[in-house]
């Protein structure tokens, strides 16, 4: 799975640390998601979509390997 968290962050001008704080996770988690090393739970994905005011499937998309 891939995601556009980094792009969305840039659009909204939010740092990794800010985003981590808002959604209540560690900075490592935000970083690992942006590097596609970690697939978040549905709860976390929904929280992120709420912050960026976009549906989940506009932020997260399936990869060829999925």
């Amino acid at each position: 799975m891939k995601n556009s968290i980094k792009v969305e962050r840039a659009i909204h001008n939010i740092t990794q640390a800010n985003l981590a704080e808002i959604i209540g996770v560690s900075r490592q988690t935000v970083n690992a998601m942006e590097l596609n090393k970690y697939v978040p739970s549905t709860v976390l994905a929904l929280k992120i979509s709420k912050i960026f005011k976009k549906p989940v499937n506009e932020i997260f998309f399936l990869d060829s390997g999925d």
């Binding site: 981590a20 560690s26 490592q28 970690y38």
Partner: peptide, 11 residues
């Protein structure tokens, strides 16, 4: 728990 024990750290 770590300071910020979240789902990624649990993994």
């Amino acid at each position: 728990k770590t300071k910020y024990e979240d789902e990624y750290i649990s993994k």
